[in-house]
Amino acid sequence: MIKRPLEKLVFATTGLVLAIQLAPIVVVVLVSVSASPVFDVTVGEFSARWWERLWANRTFWSAITLSAQIAAVSTFLAILLGTPAAIAIARAEFPGRDALAALILSPLMLPGIVLGIAMLQGFKAYGLTIPLAAIVAGHVVMTLPFIVRSILAALALFDFTLIDAARTLGCSFPRAIRKVMIPALAPAYVSGGIFAFLASFDNYPISIFLADARTKTLPVQLLEFIEESPNPMIAAVSTLLLVLTILALLALERFVGLRRAAAI
């Protein structure tokens, strides 16, 4: 119903936004196969040299492996801690329940740098001086909210009388949870798990304060590399991360649906 000129303006803005959203990603992919030694997009001339460099670069591979391990462990720990917490928040009535839910979701909204600084000082005070343990401990704070959030959303739709039904039919309570509730929550684990994994894998502000020279995670290594010796190999690493993200989104679309995962 909106008249032409206004509608045109809105469409033009949308088009511009769309281009701006995709431009940095497309450029990164193009630079990674560029024949130029600097960050340039070359037309009609491709080269695999930056990918070969990346393939041979041990520093990056160990950083990628380290980050993947940290992300996997902290997501797993978040599932262990988060599942019972989400059940308690969704089902039990106890004082401070809303405050607890707010506390668990709060890392999503606090400035990452402030969290990192607080942990640097706090963990030191505890005597936690093993960098790897400190990083995982810090990352669990970042992964737990994603897990709890998606399990809470799934529990809101879950019919708890099914558990009573299973118990009437002779299941023990833990068995009923395992056989009835966990499968119903599987999509929530997939979407929460993927977002949690990516949150840890991409985390810079916490890692930078807790990592030492031997435990540089991928984001820490990548930023250092961009600032110190910029060359298109960074574009190859970035493209690799982009492929990982696309695979994660495909999994999300397959098991959960993109609309539900985006919480709209």
Binding site: V27, V28, L198, L222, A235, T245
Partner: peptide, 11 residues
Amino acid sequence: TTSVIVKAFGW
């Protein structure tokens, strides 16, 4: 969903 570093690098 893409890493902030990747996007900032693209920019």
